[in-house]
Every structure is written in C-alpha cells, then in structure tokens.
C-alpha cells in the first residue's frame, strides 16, 4: 500500500469538503493548507494515479435531477446464488450489487429515470428469479458528509 505523508493526509481530508467556486480554487485551498498551488495540484494528481482518490469533481445527486433509486434485497438460496446474481446484474438499472452475510444475502441498488420504473424492474426480477425482491427506498437521509479521516 502506498504511504501517504502528513501533507497528503491534510490534502485528502480538506478535499473531502467542498472546493471553492472561484477562478482559482486550488490556489485558495493551497493557501489554507500552506502549500503552493502547483504542489497541491500535483498531490491530487498523484493520489488519483495511485488510486487513493477514485474521483475528484462534482458529486451529483441523480435523484435531484429527476432519477429514482431504491435499495433492494433478496434472500437467495446458496445453490442458486451465481445464477441469480447474473439474472439481477443483467438489468442495466442495477447500479451496484453486493453479497452480504445475512439471510438477505443479495443487496442491490436500482437506478431508473422514473419512480414507476423501479417497480417494473423489481417485479421483473421477481418473475425471472421466482424470489421476492424486498424494497427499501430511502425515506430520509441523515447526510452530514462522506468524510474519512486519512
């Protein structure tokens, strides 16, 4: 694993907060951190290259754009797990899918343009697999931040 120095950590912690909306945002953040603009930019580029940062840019809320999302879960018999995973993943509306340790062992997120499409995709998966698709739409988000102390 690549080692981050103390400055990288400070940069990563700061960059999980919002970048200023100004002509020279990196210069502003660099000043806050006591770095030069060039040093800051090259550190971000390096952390992107070595995979410490997966992405640097706007975080979009597709729901605010008119999209719909729903967390879904299924209790899949172990013997059929791989086949069901293929059936579920074949739907382009399945944004991501995780296997988890629980009776409900398959957890995926449906992302569609409209709310009505959530129901139709979930119903289609039920028909294809013969298994119930439990739906856990977000009722409220307790959103503070995604911060991870580096």
């Amino acid at each position: 694993m690549t080692i981050l120095d103390a400055t990288d950590r400070a940069v990563l912690n700061r960059l999980q907060e919002d970048l200023p909306l100004s002509a020279h945002p990196f210069a502003e953040v660099a000043r806050e951190l006591g770095l030069t603009e060039t040093d800051l930019i090259s550190r971000i580029a390096r952390m992107k290259d070595n995979g410490m940062i997966t992405r640097f840019g706007p975080f979009f809320d597709a729901e605010a754009m008119g999209g719909a999302f729903c967390l879904c879960a299924m209790a899949v018999p172990e013997a059929r797990f791989e086949i069901v995973a293929e059936q579920v993943n074949a739907h382009p509306e399945v944004a991501h899918n995780y296997q988890r340790c629980h009776k409900l062992n398959m957890w995926f997120v449906l992302a569609t343009g409209h709310k009505s499409a959530i129901t139709s995709v979930a119903n289609r998966i039920e028909t294809e697999t013969g298994l119930a698709v439990l739906r856990f739409p977000k009722l409220r988000e307790f959103f503070i931040g995604f911060r991870v102390a580096a």
């Binding site: 694993m1 999980q16 952390m47 706007p58 975080f59 605010a64």
Partner: peptide, 17 residues
C-alpha cells in the same frame, strides 16, 4: 437545488486501509 452536493474527492476506502 441539490443536483450537485459538493465538489470534492472521493477517497478509496480500501486503498486507505
């Protein structure tokens, strides 16, 4: 209007240990 939440880095949890 909430379409952009913020402009920031997405850290890779796994790579960060």
């Amino acid at each position: 209007i909430g379409v952009i939440r913020r402009i920031a880095a997405a850290p890779n949890h796994y790579r960060l240990g």
